Amino acid sequence: GTEDLKEEAKKALKKGDKERAKRALKKAGLSEDQIKKFIKEVL
């Protein structure tokens, strides 16, 4: 589900894998702006 994808994105970001995080967030249905915001909040 969406929460799982967001968790996956957080883990990817902590490993420095932004591309993987972006893919997971796109799958979760987030827009580009939401993805940028999510990444900023996590990092």
Rank of each mutant, 00 (worst) to 15 (best):
G1D: 13
T2C: 06
T2Y: 13
T2E: 12
T2G: 09
E3T: 09
E3G: 08
E3Y: 07
D4T: 10
D4K: 12
L5H: 06
L5S: 04
K6D: 03
E7W: 08
E7R: 08
E7L: 10
E7Y: 07
E7G: 06
E8I: 12
E8G: 03
E8W: 11
E8T: 07
A9G: 02
A9E: 01
A9W: 03
K10M: 12
K10F: 09
K11V: 12
K11E: 14
A12M: 10
A12W: 15
L13A: 03
L13M: 05
L13T: 02
K14M: 14
K14E: 12
K15H: 12
K15M: 15
K15A: 15
K15Y: 11
K15P: 01
G16H: 05
G16V: 02
G16P: 02
G16F: 05
G16Y: 05
D17F: 08
K18C: 13
K18A: 12
K18N: 11
K18P: 11
K18S: 11
K18T: 15
K18W: 15
E19D: 09
E19Q: 09
E19S: 07
E19Y: 08
R20Q: 11
R20V: 07
A21M: 04
A21H: 00
A21K: 00
A21W: 04
A21R: 01
A21Y: 02
A21G: 03
K22S: 08
K22R: 14
K22G: 05
K22T: 13
R23T: 10
R23D: 11
A24G: 02
A24Q: 06
L25E: 00
L25Q: 00
L25H: 00
L25P: 00
K26L: 13
K26C: 05
K26P: 00
K26T: 09
K26I: 13
K27S: 08
K27R: 12
A28G: 04
A28H: 03
A28E: 03
G29H: 03
G29R: 03
L30Y: 09
L30C: 05
L30H: 02
S31A: 05
S31L: 04
S31N: 11
S31K: 05
E32G: 06
E32S: 07
D33G: 07
D33M: 08
D33N: 08
D33R: 10
D33E: 13
Q34K: 04
I35G: 00
I35K: 01
K36Q: 14
K36L: 14
K36W: 11
K37A: 15
K37H: 11
K37P: 01
K37M: 13
F38M: 03
F38E: 01
I39D: 00
I39H: 01
K40Q: 14
K40F: 14
K40P: 02
K40I: 13
E41P: 01
E41S: 10
E41C: 10
E41L: 10
V42G: 05
V42N: 11
V42F: 15
L43Q: 07
L43F: 09
L43H: 05
L43D: 05
